[in-house]
Amino acid sequence: MLVIETINLSRIFINKKTKKRIEALKNVSLQIQGGQIFGILGRNGAGKTTLIRILTTLLLPTSGSAYVLGYNVENEYYKIRPYINLVSGGENPGYGVLNIKENLFFFSQLYGIPRKLAKEKINKYIKEFGLEERAYNLVNTLSTGEKQRMQLIRGLLNDPEILFLDEPTVGLDVESSRFIRQFIKKWIEETGKSIILTTHYLAEAEELCNLIAIIDSGRILALDTPSRLKAMGSKEILYEIETTPLSLEFLKNIRGVSIIQDKYLDGKVSFKISLENESLISNVINKISELGSNIIYLRKKETSLEDAFINIVGRSIEDD
C-alpha cells in the first residue's frame, strides 16, 4: 500500500531581513510503500526535516503536492493527523512540572485516548522502555537518553500508521541509540506499520532502512535499497590480498590489473588491486601459486554506504 506520495514537491523559505530565497526542497517526487522503514539520508540542511514537516502537516509546500495515506497534506491535514506521530531528536517537548507518566498522559489526551486505555498503554511502554524507576520523576531530572525514550513512547501512544522519526538518536549515548534502533526494528516487525526516518548517521540508515533516499540541497539524488546504493559507490572491483614474500612485478604483466597499495611487513606482502573485470582474480591467484608464494588472506572489498554517498552527492556526509 502506498502510504506517502509527493509530486514535484518544493518549498522555498524567504529570509525576511535579507530577502534571500532558500530552496529547501526542489521538485521532490517520492512514492513510499507501507510496512517498511524508509530512510531519508542527507547532510545537515539537506532538506530532510523540511520534507518531514510537510508530511506531518506542520508546513505547507510552496508548490507541488504531497499525500499521506492518500490525503492531501494541504487541505486534508485533519484526516492525516489521527494516523501519524512525530518524534524529533534533540528536542524535549513536555512540561517540566510534570513527571513522565503525567506528561505521557497529557499527550495521549490530545489523541482522545480513553483514560484507562491511555494509562494501560503508558504503563506497558514505560516497562518496555525500562523507565519504571523514573516514571514518577519530573522530566527535568531525566537524562538525555531517558528523555528520548519518553519521547518515543509519546510517539507510539496513538498507534500511528506512520511514525516520523526525525534524527531520533542524535546526541544520544551508544546504549540509548542501540536501544532505540532495536525497538524500531521490533515495532515494524510486530505491527507492519511504517516509519519514515531521517538521519545523517550512515550506519543507522544501513542497519534500519529497507529503502534509503539520499537527499542533498533539496533534491532526491538516489533512492534504493542499502545494498544497491552501496553498489553505486564505485564501479571498481577491489581485492585485498596478503601473501608470503613475493615480488609484485608480475602484476604489471596481467592486463586489466593495477596495484593501488602495497606494504611489506614482517616477511609478508599486503596489497590492494583493482580489476577491470571479476574473472581476472583467477589469473592473479594462479600466478601467485606459480611463483611459489602462499595466499594468507584474500578479500573482495565491498563499497560502503559512505563511499556511495560520496559518489552520489560529491562530498562526505560530515563535510560542512
Binding site: T57, Y78, N85, L86, N92, G94
Partner: peptide, 13 residues
C-alpha cells in the same frame, strides 16, 4: 519554545 507546539498541531484535536 519548548517544542510542544508542533505536537499540538500534528495531533487530531
Amino acid at each position: 519554545m519548548t517544542g510542544n507546539l508542533p505536537l499540538f498541531f500534528i495531533a487530531p484535536c
